[in-house]
Design a binder for these strands. Structure first.
Length: 446
RNA sequence: GGACAGGUGGCCGAGUGGUUGAAGGCGCACGCCUGGAAAGUGUGUGAACGUCAAAAGCGUUCCGCGGGUUCGAAUCCCGCCCUGUCCGCCA
């Protein structure tokens, strides 16, 4: 969510930045002016309300005094005055609330502004590779490499058919060594990330609407989620541990020396994949349920850009340790998520598909989620008056910055290991780093 | 799920209708004291929003959340959420 003051004070700059998102290329100005208009109405109503309320409070105090002094005539006069004020106050308050709600609604669906160094573009084709982050080269084979599901089914360790009978499309049973590979990868990633300074967390997998609002899934992307129960007190299944991990700091005022806060969790993720009909229908690339190790950092505004690079290093490190070739791209303005200021995607090489596929996404969300959650910190040195560009919500408290990234998506890492380490006979070599976890060097047909 | 008890500032904790944003304590900041520190001592110390070019000031709101009663509610009433204890159930 955006800082209203910033929009008021820098209307043109705001419009310009918003328009860099292709979805708003046409009507960024219109949307912004609608908000400003609502804002003006809201403030008008608020002022009227406050003035009437101030008089009411004053009169009420005077009534108390008059009664104490046994001045019944005075009390009566004041009582009449307040009675007359009441209708006006009620109307003012109703107006103020109505405008406020409308304003919040309009504000809640606006995406974050891309950072200045994010390339402009329409879709994934306009993403720009970060050359310095490339690792390894496309794995060479002296046979035609297979896709993961061909390998898995031939090994008898990956069963889409029975999963279909039990749960429908986009589910899978892993068995034996592949089930163990999933577990080994998760454990390996958790060990590696906690060694990198992330505190291990086991978070709730079912969360409330407010948490989804905080990280930006609601109100706009309700249809992407699974809901565990209907009605007011519903629970949603997390589509990523970003939701419970980031919301760890919601409605808190943290001490600056607690920052940066780094946490990690290995959890199942549930996604309805609405709108993805027909995409990646075969295999494990796109499932309704998959597991992922998530990294979340909460930092000061000054630290977040460096933290973003650090987090991307941590995610890449898993692939390096596993010897998996990959590249990193900066998402263009058209491919970036709702809450992001800037996003790096890590794409791993999949020989079976003969292309790079996303395996991690690391985003800096700036203060966007923090404002939605009410996550702030108290600065040690509060000489930071009037920071331009927001970040300050008043007094001695400032909004934190939040970042999240996959470190990594376990299911897709499993695919990458299978495809890159396959042999001509359909067996799969276990990468050195995983052998202690797997207790074997090769996955073969049972 | 049932019964009972609770949810107050960064933390602990008083407060059952009137100038209470809220006693007291802890913590924190600054000063005094000290060669320096500790102890002691003094002062200060919530947030959000509006108004203002800005600050000061002023105003509004906030004692879990939402409604209600009242001229006036942290205090009374109703609903919900959460926490604790006991019972039931359960991995």
């Amino acid at each position: 969510m955006h800082d209203l003051k910033l929009i008021r004070d820098n209307r043109d700059a705001f419009v310009e930045a918003l328009a860099r998102r292709p979805a708003y290329a046409e009507d960024a100005g219109k949307k912004t002016d609608e908000i400003l208009e609502l804002d003006a109405k809201w403030r008008g109503a608020k002022t009227a309300f406050e003035q009437h309320r101030a008089r009411q409070n004053e009169a009420s105090r005077a009534i108390g005094m008059a009664k104490k002094n046994k001045d019944e005539a005075q009390a009566k006069a004041l009582l009449d005055e307040v009675a007359n004020l009441k209708a006006a106050i009620q109307k003012d308050e109703a107006d103020e609330r109505a405008y406020d709600e409308e304003l919040r609604k309009a504000l809640a669906v606006l995406p974050n502004l891309p950072a200045e160094d994010v390339p402009f573009g329409a879709d994934e084709n306009d993403n720009v590779e970060v050359a310095a982050r490339r690792f390894g080269s496309q794995t060479k084979f002296d046979f035609k490499p297979k896709e993961h599901f061909e390998l898995g089914e031939a090994l008898g360790l990956m069963d889409f058919e029975r999963a279909g009978r039990v749960s429908g499309a986009r589910f899978v049973y892993l068995k034996g060594a592949l089930a163990r590979l999933e577990r080994s990868l998760g454990a390996f990633m958790m060990d590696t990330q906690s060694a990198a300074g992330y505190t291990e967390i086991v978070p709730p997998l079912l969360v409330r609407d407010e948490a989804f609002f905080g990280t930006g899934q609601l109100p706009k992307f309700e249809e992407d989620l699974f809901w565990a129960s209907a009605g007011e007190g519903r629970f949603g299944l997390i589509p990523t541990a970003e939701v419970p991990l980031t919301n760890l700091v919601r409605e808190e005022i943290l001490d600056e020396d607690k920052l940066p806060m780094r946490v990690t969790a290995w959890t199942p993720c549930f996604r309805a994949e609405a709108g993805a009909a027909g995409r990646d229908t075969r295999g494990m690339i796109r499932q309704h349920q998959f597991s992922k190790v998530e990294l979340v950092s909460v930092t000061t505004p000054e630290q977040s850009v460096a933290e973003h690079e650090r987090m991307t290093d941590c995610a890449q490190n898993i692939l390096k340790l596993l010897g998996l070739p990959h590249r990193v791209v900066t998402l263009c303005t058209g491919d970036m998520g709702f809450g992001a200021v800037k996003t790096y995607d890590i794409e791993v090489w999949l020989p079976g598909q003969d292309r790079y596929r996303e395996i991690s996404s690391c985003s800096n969300c700036g203060e966007f989620q923090a404002r939605r959650m009410g996550a702030r910190y108290r600065a040690k040195d509060d000489s930071s008056n009037g920071r331009p560009g927001g970040g300050r919500s008043g007094g001695g408290t400032r909004l934190v910055h939040t970042l999240n990234g996959s470190g990594l998506a376990v299911g897709r890492t499993l695919i990458a290991v299978m495809e890159n380490y396959q042999d001509a006979d359909g067996s799969i070599r276990v990468p050195d780093a995983l052998q202690p976890y797997m207790g074997m060097k090769k996955i073969e047909k049972a």
